[in-house]
Simulated assay, not measured.
Amino acid sequence: MATEVVEEADWYRIEYDDDIDALIHTWTMFSSGEQFREGANALYEALNEYDVSKEIIDTREVKAHDEEDKQWLQEEWIPKMVEAGMAYSANVHRESVIAEMDMQETVDPLEDLPFENMMTDDMAEAREWLADQ
């Protein structure tokens, strides 16, 4: 796997993976509010810079999302990402029913947006799915 670090902060890392032509955004610790939005918007900037349509969001280090942050993701950030060209998004969550339910609750209201989303607790599965897209 050949990756290039695009940006890094204490709470996230963004890499470009040229094997699957995708960005990988890893949340390395919980964040919320402005800090969360800063990390999410860094991925938006990278999507524009690298002109890719695929992303992996690795939230294995996050237990749950803040309700305000979920609302912001649903109403503003995800539609903005789709408009910028995101067509495929794989979400890697911690191995937990609660984490999976949290992720599902975030993306379910977005089923009418023109992008495909998959959720898994396995990074290899997420990479394989995106490689096929």
Rank of each mutant, 00 (worst) to 15 (best):
H93C: 08
D66G: 01
D112L: 09
L110P: 00
E111V: 13
W72L: 00
S96M: 06
V52M: 08
E125I: 06
E67C: 04
Q74E: 10
W72H: 07
D51K: 10
A99G: 13
M101V: 11
I78M: 04
W77M: 04
K70R: 06
N117H: 04
S53I: 10
P79V: 01
D51C: 00
P109G: 08
D66V: 11
K54H: 04
S96G: 11
E95V: 12
E67Y: 00
M101D: 05
D102V: 14
K63P: 01
M119N: 07
E83C: 05
L110Y: 01
F115D: 04
D122I: 09
K80Y: 08
D121N: 14
I98N: 04
E125H: 04
E105Q: 12
P114E: 02
D58T: 06
E95Y: 13
N117L: 04
Y44L: 15
P109I: 05
E95D: 15
K54N: 02
V97W: 13
T59R: 06
L110D: 02
G85E: 05
Q74C: 04
P114T: 03
M101W: 11
Y50T: 03
F115I: 05
S53E: 15
Y50M: 03
R60H: 04
L113Y: 00
D112M: 02
K80A: 03
W72S: 05
E111D: 13
T106E: 05
Q104M: 14
V97K: 14
A99T: 05
A99R: 15
V107K: 04
K80S: 06
E125D: 01
